[in-house]
Every structure is written in structure tokens, then in C-alpha cells.
């Protein structure tokens, strides 16, 4: 089962949040934010994780970096178990897993200088001190395209794109094997998005770091990911190599997502058949039985409400969880 090359192995991970009981007793059903997920990311690989808001992407990311304990299942980073790890073990593990957050404004402490922010992981772990530390910080700044003199400035003196560069430098300071990128470009201007994406790709080539790239933007995922996984209500419904995924999307939910991406060519855009989903995302505390998607699925039949489809391999390398696709 254990793949030695894998940087990240997620096996049947669930994260349930217990809802608080009411005044008059009765324990409400737990919120199943993540409900049985398998993922593997190899060295130097980028997995794009796609899904609408509320599907559990962020919860899964937080569980992988150890900020949220999983209810069950196993999360291994370079073979070391994250789930249920002690504080000391987590501390050691986090050398290998770092995270880039969505909002570059809130990702940096407004009261500490950029240099101090980037130096923190190195200083706290005693990796470097004094002169060596300063040189390392300068090198990290250079790596993300900033100047050494920027170290003494405060975050508010930088633009959004520059701040995200600082966040990236901090995340890479410990040379982690895996960086979880939680929507790293969705808060940025379109004009700087490409710069940041290219920087991430460039750093991956140089350092061999793997990314779990969480996004709701399929265009961005297409640009950066080697493989794509689509999440719906805490589960993965389709997983495929990028080219396979974008050539032939199979799961009806993934297809609906794809059809929502606007086409640059107006003729093609008008000719496109859009699948518009009706209804809302069901509550994760009360997921529909069987296939969670059957309440909104155009292909749904009786079997969908009774049996949960398993992720099954397709001839072209995709894994799809659907009775009909």
C-alpha cells in the first residue's frame, strides 16, 4: 500500500465536525466536511484540487498540514503519519509540509517585518542564526524575485502580488517536500496571477517541491496541475491526469464545472452546451444517501440514491465515481 516515492499519501481520510447540541438535548448530526478521501502526490508533482466553496477543499488542506485533526483515516507525508501525531512529531513533520494561504494581506503579520516573517521558520527551528540567517533570508527573497533591502520593510508597503511572493518565500524557507496552496492566486489581480503561477512552477522545477493546488478556477488548474481531482461534498468524484481530464471530463459534476468555464472565442462560447445545475449544495451534515450528487445530477436514476458509486479506473487513466458516466 505504501508508495515510497509518494510525498503525500491520503488514505480514506474523514474530517467530521461535531455540531453543538441544543439546549433541549439531541445531538445534531456531525458536519462531514471531508468524508473518505484518497489522494497521492508524487515528488515534484502538482495535484489540482477543484470544487465549489463548501465542498471541503480547505478542510482537507488544513488536515494535511496538521491544523485540523482528521476524524479517521491516514495522512502520510514522506511516509510519516500526520493523523494522530504528537505535538513533537507534528513539529518535526511540518518541516516537510507548508502552506500558502488565499489572502496575502492576512497571511503576513502587519507588525513584523518581511525579513522577520521569512526568518521565523528558520529561527524557531534553530536552522540558522545571525549572519547566516540574514544571508538565507536574502537568498529566499531573491528566489521569489524581491530585493534584499525589502527585508526591513513591513507588509503594508507591498502590493498583493509582492506579498504573495513573500508568503511563498516563507513557505519554502524550510525546503519542504510539499506545499499546500490554498487558492494562492484567487485574491490577486488577473495581471499578477500569471506571474505568481509561473513563479510557483519555476520554484518547483528548481527545488523539486510538490504542490497540492486547491482552486475553484479550472483555467488556473489547467495551467499548473499535472493531475486534477474534483471534490463534491467531501468526496472525490473524479481524478485524472490533466490532459485526460480536460480532453474528456466524465463525471457529470465535473462536466458541469467545465461547462461553466467561459470560452475566449465568442462563437465557440455561443455554441457551447452549458450544463446548469439546479438546486443548492446539500448540507454536509445531512448528505443525500447513495451518490451525494444525485439530487442535482442530470443522469441520476434509482440506483444513484441507493448505492454510493466507488472511484473506478477508466481505460484512459481517469478515476471516476459515477454509475452512469
Amino acid at each position: 500500500m505504501t508508495d515510497l516515492d509518494a510525498v503525500l499519501e491520503v488514505r480514506d481520510v474523514a474530517v467530521h465536525f461535531a455540531a453543538r447540541g441544543g439546549l433541549f438535548g439531541g445531538t445534531p448530526a456531525p458536519v462531514k466536511a471531508v468524508d473518505g478521501i484518497d489522494l497521492t502526490i508524487g515528488a515534484g508533482e502538482t495535484l489540482g484540487l477543484v470544487g465549489e466553496s463548501g465542498c471541503g477543499k480547505s478542510t482537507l488542506s488544513n488536515a494535511i498540514v496538521g491544523l485540523v485533526p482528521p476524524t479517521s483515516g491516514s495522512i502520510r507525508v514522506r511516509g510519516h503519519e500526520v493523523a494522530g501525531a504528537s505535538r513533537a512529531a507534528l513539529h518535526a513533520l511540518r518541516r516537510n509540509v507548508q502552506m500558502i494561504f488565499q489572502d496575502p494581506v492576512l497571511s503576513l503579520d502587519p507588525r513584523s517585518t518581511v525579513g522577520a516573517a521569512i526568518a521565523e521558520p528558520l529561527a524557531v527551528r534553530g536552522v540558522a542564526r545571525g549572519r547566516v540567517l540574514k544571508d538565507k533570508v536574502d537568498a529566499l527573497l531573491a528566489q521569489v524575485g524581491l530585493e534584499a533591502e525589502h527585508a526591513g520593510r513591513y507588509p503594508h508597503q507591498f502590493s498583493g502580488g509582492q506579498r504573495q511572493r513573500i508568503v511563498i518565500a516563507r513557505a519554502l524557507a524550510l525546503e519542504p517536500a510539499l506545499v499546500v496552496c490554498d487558492e494562492p492566486v484567487s485574491a490577486l489581480d488577473v495581471s499578477v496571477r500569471a506571474q505568481i503561477l509561473n513563479l510557483l512552477v519555476d520554484l518547483q522545477r528548481r527545488m523539486g517541491v510538490s504542490y497540492l493546488f486547491v482552486s475553484h478556477d479550472l483555467a488556473v488548474v489547467r495551467h499548473i496541475a499535472d493531475r486534477v481531482a474534483v471534490m463534491y461534498l467531501g468526496r472525490i468524484v473524479e481524478q485524472a491526469p490533466r490532459d485526460v481530464f480536460f480532453a474528456a471530463t466524465k463525471h457529470p459534476y465535473a462536466r458541469a464545472l467545465m461547462s461553466a468555464v467561459p470560452e475566449a472565442d465568442p462563437v465557440a462560447q455561443r455554441a457551447k452546451r452549458r450544463t446548469i445545475l439546479s438546486g443548492e449544495l446539500p448540507s454536509p451534515s445531512n448528505a443525500p444517501p447513495g451518490c451525494a450528487f444525485h439530487t442535482r445530477c442530470p443522469l441520476a436514476t434509482d440506483v444513484c440514491s441507493r448505492e454510493r458509486p466507488r472511484l473506478t479506473p477508466r481505460p484512459d487513466g481517469a478515476l471516476v465515481a459515477c454509475h452512469h458516466a
Binding site: R95, V97, D109, P110, R170
Partner: peptide, 26 residues
């Protein structure tokens, strides 16, 4: 609950350091 506090946690900073260096000034 702000990301920069989580980032410090991920950086390996202990509770005392986070509270004194990052929470208190803010």
C-alpha cells in the same frame, strides 16, 4: 484565526512565541 497566526504555527513557533510576538503586538 488569521492566516498569519496559522503560518507561524506551521513555521514551528510555540504558543508562547505566537502570543507574545504575533498576537500581543496586534
Amino acid at each position: 484565526n488569521l492566516p498569519y497566526i496559522k503560518a507561524s504555527e506551521l513555521a514551528g513557533a510555540g504558543s508562547a512565541r505566537i502570543l507574545l510576538r504575533h498576537v500581543l503586538p496586534n
